[in-house]
Design a protein around this nucleic acid. Structure first.
Length: 411
DNA sequence: TCTGGGGTCCTAGGACCC
DNA sequence: TCTGGGGTCCTAGGACCC
């Protein structure tokens, strides 16, 4: 029998920013999603100042100034790379591992091998090899391991083994239902009307009621809370869809501008597809007006391709088709994006019998990717895509993934 | 004035078939 | 006037996660 260990990186994005800036240590720091974006990560000190998650940063500007809060713009290539290093570090312990997100992973630990010392060793090694602090929670199911991790974050060791049945029971009595993994805002609202406030209250409801109110999710959550695994340890790790979306600083009404922007998204998305050796059979373009205003407008077009593709011009053509239906001012666009779905392996794609593909030159894309890899993004680009459609506030350097950004130190 | 950007899975209802 | 029943598949939208 195995236990389930969840490793959760503390304040992950904020901690990543601090790795290469010792002067950021023990200072309030937030990572925001753009110039006026929302706060998506906070250091311990920033949390203590009462800055909530997902706060619109412009609303907290004066607090940021008053308290000397360091604000960083997201630097995902850095976070991804640090995440990869953490995985490599954890792999040295040799337990089956399922990576759940950029800052969380589950490990299967055989019952007889679980000790406080093991957990301590894992934490220490990750800290030493990557500079990141972690919280560890152990229990019998993933959902309970999540509960344990929540508890761990309140303990100074940041470790919690929650396997004793009586203790689990006691814990669930006071564990807020909205903190359970899988219970979101909407479900919480529903549950409150039935006076379900703690995890235990949820467990006490009968299955038929739960199925009706929350669907299959509710049943699974309950089963996990009672110690029965409802999710396989290894879940699919293959991407099923891929998106590129952006929210703009100001609204866009000119179709020619949106044309360029979507073309850039397509270029970026197709590069991603080729990097992960995937082709898409379905393609979506969407444009949206601001979600904070009345009269929300949407424009969505989905195309099914005759044959899966990751050849940029295929999608640029579909974009022409979609956007030709619009004229300036039809919609004031605050957010736009594209999505690829029904991804298949690019080496074994199904050909279409009735629409034989015109011979595309995959080498062309290979060369393009190669040149851009070597000489930097957008060295070579399609004329229809804009070179840079937003002035990006600068992120921290790509310390670990870009030769030009490698840190120089004097000793 | 300014409010990420990715993902996954499930469900209800319509279309369609025999 | 009266017009079945059971099944599958597809899709949009909703809920959740980080």
């Amino acid at each position: 029998m195995n236990y389930c260990l969840l490793i959760d990186c503390d304040n992950f994005f904020a901690s990543c920013e601090a790795i290469f800036h010792p002067e950021y240590k023990n200072k309030p720091l937030v990572v925001a999603s753009g110039k006026n974006g929302i706060v998506i990560a906070r250091s311990k000190e920033a949390k203590a100042l009462g800055i909530p998650m997902a706060a619109a940063s412009f609303k907290y500007k004066s607090l940021f100034i008053k308290e000397d809060v360091i604000t960083c713009k997201t630097n995902f290539s850095l976070y991804r790379d640090i995440s990869l290093r953490i995985r490599e570090t954890v792999a040295t312990f040799g337990f089956p591992t399922f990576v759940y997100s950029v800052d969380e992973m589950f490990l299967q630990i055989p019952k007889e091998q679980l000790t406080e010392k093991l957990l301590n060793d894992i934490q220490k090694k990750i800290k030493r090899w990557t500079g990141i602090d972690t919280s560890l929670g152990v229990s019998t199911t993933k959902t309970l391991a999540k509960v344990a991790t929540k508890l761990a974050k309140k303990i100074h060791t940041r470790r919690k083994i929650l396997i004793d049945e009586t203790e689990i029971n006691q814990t669930l009595k006071t564990f807020p239902v909205e903190d359970i993994w899988g219970i979101g805002r909407n479900t919480h609202k529903k549950l409150i009307t039935y006076k379900v406030r703690s995890a235990k209250d949820l467990l006490n409801k009968n299955p038929e009621f739960l199925k009706k109110l929350l669907g299959i999710h509710g049943l699974r959550t309950c089963s996990e809370l009672s110690g029965k695994n409802a999710y396989p340890f290894f879940q699919t790790n293959v991407d099923k869809s891929l998106q590129v979306t952006k929210t703009f600083l100001t609204e866009i009404i000119k179709i020619s501008s949106i044309n360029e922007i979507i073309a850039s998204f397509i270029t970026e998305g197709c590069e991603k597809l080729r990097r992960i050796n995937r082709k898409a059979a379905e393609f979506t373009i969407f444009l949206q007006s601001s979600r904070f205003k009345n009269n929300r407008q949407y424009f969505t077009k989905t195309y099914t391709l005759d044959e899966p593709s990751n050849y940029t011009p295929d999608f640029l053509m579909l974009k022409e088709k979609a956007l030709s239906q619009l004229k300036d001012g039809d919609i004031s666009i605050k957010r736009a994006g594209i999505g690829f779905s029904f991804l298949t392996d690019s080496h074994s794609t199904q050909k279409n019998l009735f629409h034989p593909s015109n011979e595309k030159n995959p080498q062309l894309m290979e060369i393009l990717d190669h040149i851009n890899d070597k000489f930097g993004d957008k060295t070579l680009r399609f004329a229809s895509s804009s070179k840079s459609f937003v002035k990006r506030p600068s992120s921290s350097a790509k310390y670990t993934t870009c030769w030009d950004d490698i840190l120089e130190i004097q000793i």
